[in-house]
Design a protein around this nucleic acid. Structure first.
Lengths: 272, 272
DNA sequence: AATATTTTGTTGCATACACATCGTTTTGAT
DNA sequence: ATCAAAACGATGTGTATGCAACAAAATATT
């Protein structure tokens, strides 16, 4: 039996106190939308004592579903998803450096396509931080939200929502992209080798491929850990690229291939 | 388990303290990586007194660059829904009740259009909570993210991103909606009178209008405080509605008009 | 160098939160 | 209906944070 409160809803009498599990699920939902919740606020909202909320938060924190803070709790990461988080965890600073350098190549008034992924989210943060007044077309919800609150104009693509990356993909996305042509595109990828750019999920690769076609100059932002790997789905050949932003010089084989394809290589060095 | 990897950005020159501006810049950078920072942690890292950090956070909060919390601060909630203001806090429960009742009218396998707004976000939470396996088309990013992590299939509309509601609007949105036809639509609004449904922003009204046309049955979720008001932009006439979900019985004038338009009225009552 | 200005630290006190304990209520099963 | 288990609320105590006023230090200005 699903519980009695459902019967209450069926009887159109809602507003009874939520039970433990319902409350905790609501807390998690809330944290998908806001970065932080306060115990006092939640206690009032659920009409329970702060002690009960404290117990809820402690329980959720024990499962690593939230991060406790004094007086409240925050999401493990900003509306993003665990699998993404795990991957991000280690190389945060490399990504940040790559994004900061790449952001300098975007100027006011330009039109830019930005795809989904952890590195491009960092790019969006860097662009927002610099208040670049560009027009952005993206399929990533975090990128749209980050840039949309700043100086940039943001156009979001349609498509099927993928929770794993908080982005949209699919035929609607591709068809939409075909209606536009932009100054530059900035994409990420999960692998880069002499074979070209590749991705583990076909749908995301298709979006990158289309973006590469719709831009005058194409930039790839990628962690050097992903050099030399060839993923399942190809997102494009090396000669489709104009610039590569990364954090370490590629090894000889890849380096030669990149030079042959006339790709500018920009290495974001660690700050001294 | 908290990693200390972020230490590299911060003071590496031992003995020399960072200046105010540099410290605040680092706080903002930190908040781009983590959703929440604590005063005590930052004070230790920058080797300054908690009071200084408090002043820093207060200053940043005054510029709306961060959200203060007890003992720390979090990244500004990305315009996700504005109205958590204290004044409307009381109406949160009404919205929850309305959403909970409305959610039970949606069944597995149905196709649904959901528009943007605080009430529809509550609806999304209620649907996610009930794990309804429906297909949803929406122009609201919070709705997409909330439902997309659950059992529902979500299709996001294209369009210009509006930070005020974290949703997309514009000609691309309308054109996209015209390609679909769904079982039901669930919209919110900022006003309802005998004149019909209305909205303060033209672009959002246009989306609601289009959704009403594309659905077999149309539902409006609205707070009873908004009864009797006629807003700037009309989103539809009363006879386009099939069901009205609200929290209190409309007054005679509006009630008569709703009955004349054959609108079912469902009042979500508070549990006694 | 001397002074003015800004920034930071310190102190004392008020408040909010954390935590453990225990009594009460609710829930679930028989 | 009765009982046991779980969940919840209330209380008291201790700690962390907030706030305001003032003192000390660093910085800028002349």
């Amino acid at each position: 039996m699903q519980d009695r409160s459902m019967l209450n809803i069926a009887a159109r009498k809602v507003g009874k106190k939520l039970k433990k599990q319902e409350r905790r699920r609501q807390i998690l939902l809330e944290l998908k939308l806001r970065p932080h919740v306060r115990i006092s606020t939640l206690a009032e909202r659920f009409d329970v004592s702060p002690e009960t909320l404290r117990r809820d938060l402690d329980a959720l924190a024990a499962e690593n579903l939230i991060d406790r803070a004094h007086g409240g709790a925050s999401a493990p990461s900003q509306g993003l998803y665990p699998p993404l988080n795990e991957r991000i965890a280690g190389r945060v600073h490399e990504r940040e450096r790559i994004a900061a350098v790449a952001a300098q190549s975007v100027h006011d008034g330009e039109t830019v396509m930005i795809d989904s992924g952890s590195t491009t989210i960092e790019l969006a943060k860097a662009l927002a931080f610099r208040s670049v007044t560009c027009t952005v077309i993206t399929n990533s919800l975090p990128v749209a939200m980050t840039l949309g609150h700043g100086a940039a104009d943001v156009m979001l693509c349609p498509g099927e929502y993928q929770s794993a990356e908080s982005a949209v993909i699919g035929t609607e996305t591709l068809e939409f992209l075909r209606n536009y042509h932009v100054d530059r595109c900035m994409i990420g990828a999960s692998a880069l080798s002499e074979e070209g750019i590749s991705e583990t999920v076909r749908g995301f690769a298709a979006v990158k491929r289309e973006m590469l076609r719709r831009a005058a100059t194409c930039a790839l932002l990628i962690d050097s850990e992903k050099f030399g790997i060839t993923g399942l789905a190809s997102a494009g050949k090396l000669d489709e690229l104009d610039v590569l932003f990364t954090d370490a010089r590629p090894r000889t084989g890849l380096l030669a291939a990149l030079r042959a394809a006339q790709v500018d290589i920009v290495v974001a060095e660690a700050a001294s």
